[in-house]
């Protein structure tokens, strides 16, 4: 029952998201365009080539980050964990920082060629997967998952430090370019890019789906899980791969979207009052999509020419919700 309500909500938010924007387009026209009927050409262009891929991206980002946050919180038994504890964002930021700010230090005139959108995506992917590779190697060596958590944090510190050094030597324009990436953005993707994002995201989701039983076993703690026949290193490997595919790719394409990955699992646990991943995983998936669509609609500032950075909105909307839920129920469900 609750799932049907969530699915209806997703569809509703999806439509609201498409119908809102700097240009006001009548709902009837939007329906016509979505159904493939002829309408005003520029409206058609705005809906099909801008708003629709943006809404699809919002769904991918919200659900993907939510699911990877859930997996990290369960794997590390830590309510503060999110998709980025493994150092994925730090790696991505470092990659982007090197492309946007390092070019002038390293080679001078390369900047103009390098700092195109695709090169940022590639740099971010490369950075996050490099960090991931190290984390994976570590994860097969250590027995305790907590060590991985600390190592992820250390990578975060190292890359922040390198980014600081780079920005100290950078020009104002380079800094601005780097910071714009850091604001996060859903709206810059063409259908081709959305397609590639979706492909990798789907593979990541498939991995998470196969981890549902593992995640439930991990609710008992690692030693019990091992006594139930779980191959802890293999399971950890799969969960980390799934998270990196989801969070790494999303970050590469949209920038580091804060908060969703941390907050959505908490909101869902409070609402559904369960720790069973057979319920949590799909619920987090749907809630993530809903919250992201709503946040994106707000950040559009409908009927105005301004767009707020999505990263600010996710925290502004999400944090009060989490606080309200925790205070109202007085008991944190974890």
């Amino acid at each position: 029952m609750a799932f049907i309500a969530l699915i209806v909500l997703v569809l509703l938010c999806f439509f609201i998201n498409i119908s809102l924007g700097s240009l006001s387009i009548p709902n009837k026209a939007i329906f016509n365009i979505l159904l493939g009927n002829n309408e005003n050409i520029s409206w058609h262009h705005i809906i099909i080539d801008y708003r629709l891929p943006k809404a699809v991206t919002a769904i991918i980002v919200g659900s993907g980050l939510g699911v990877s946050g859930l997996m990290m919180q369960t794997l590390f038994r830590n309510p503060l964990a999110g998709p980025f504890v493994l150092g994925i964002t730090s790696g991505a930021s470092l990659g982007v920082a090197i492309i946007t700010m390092g070019a002038s230090i390293l080679g001078g005139t390369l900047l103009g060629i390098l700092a195109s959108k695709w090169s940022i995506v590639i740099a971010a992917t490369f950075g996050s997967f490099l960090v991931l590779l190290v984390v994976l190697i570590v994860s097969t060596r250590v027995r305790d998952s907590m060590a991985i958590l600390i190592i992820g944090l250390m990578f975060g510190s190292i890359s922040t430090a390198v980014v600081n050094v780079l920005s100290y030597f950078s020009s104002a324009e380079e800094l601005q370019q780097y910071f714009f990436w850091g604001f996060g953005s859903l709206g810059n993707l063409s259908w081709n890019e959305v397609f590639i994002l979706f492909l990798i995201y789907a593979i990541g989701l498939l991995f998470s789906l196969t981890s549902v039983k593992t995640l439930n076993t991990l609710l008992l703690g690692e030693n019990y899980a091992i006594s139930l026949g779980l191959n802890i290193k293999k399971s950890r490997f799969i969960i980390i791969i799934a998270t990196s595919l989801l969070a790494g790719t999303i970050t590469a394409f949209t920038g580091p979207i804060a908060f969703i990955g941390l907050a959505i699992p908490h909101i869902t646990r409070q609402v559904f009052n369960t720790s069973n991943h057979k319920i949590l995983l799909p619920a987090v998936f749907l809630s993530g999509a809903i919250v992201m669509l709503i946040c994106d609609s707000i950040s559009q500032l409908p009927n105005s020419d301004y767009t707020l950075p999505i990263n600010a909105i996710t925290s502004l909307v999400g944090a009060p919700v989490v606080i309200w839920l925790l205070v109202r129920k007085r008991k944190m469900v974890f």
Partner: peptide, 13 residues
């Protein structure tokens, strides 16, 4: 099968 001294990770089950 085992019963250990360590507390279980999630008491929300």
């Amino acid at each position: 099968s085992l019963v250990l001294t360590e507390p279980i990770a999630s008491k929300n089950l």
